[in-house]
């Protein structure tokens, strides 16, 4: 399980490799908040290599979205597989986030 951050022009892209669950959610949160503190405002989380997300992981995404928006920024998501789409639909979080089918479309959406 790891989180890799790369900068694409003005967008910070976070790759979630493995699971986003109660045991590692704080690591993701802190990494994104550190970038926000440094002045970054556009974030795209790419789930192409993500297994599953639990409620704690979903909660961190909601929390980050709020904090980034408070600073005038935007958090968007990309590459949800069918399982993750089901999870977002069940919880109606698909109505809260802007979700792109691919990393490229996610980057273009900013």
């Amino acid at each position: 399980m790891s989180f890799t951050m790369t900068k694409h022009v003005t967008v910070v892209v976070v790759d979630v490799d493995g699971q986003l669950i109660v045991g590692n959610r704080q690591e993701l949160k802190q990494k994104v908040l550190d970038e926000l503190e440094k002045g970054e405002r556009k974030f795209l989380i790419d789930f192409a290599r993500t297994g599953y997300i639990d409620s704690s992981g979903l909660g961190v995404l909601v929390s980050l979205s709020k904090k980034i928006r408070e600073q005038g920024g935007e958090l968007r998501l990309a590459n949800l597989n069918d399982d993750l789409k089901t999870l977002f639909e069940l919880t109606k979080l698909d109505t809260l986030f802007q979700i792109a089918d691919s990393r490229e479309r996610g980057l273009e959406s900013f």
Partner: peptide, 22 residues
Amino acid sequence: DPTTPANVTREDGRGLFLMRRL
């Protein structure tokens, strides 16, 4: 129910709901 307008923006409260739905 984390899907209500009041709850969907909450950071917690989805665990038991997901267990019961899945």
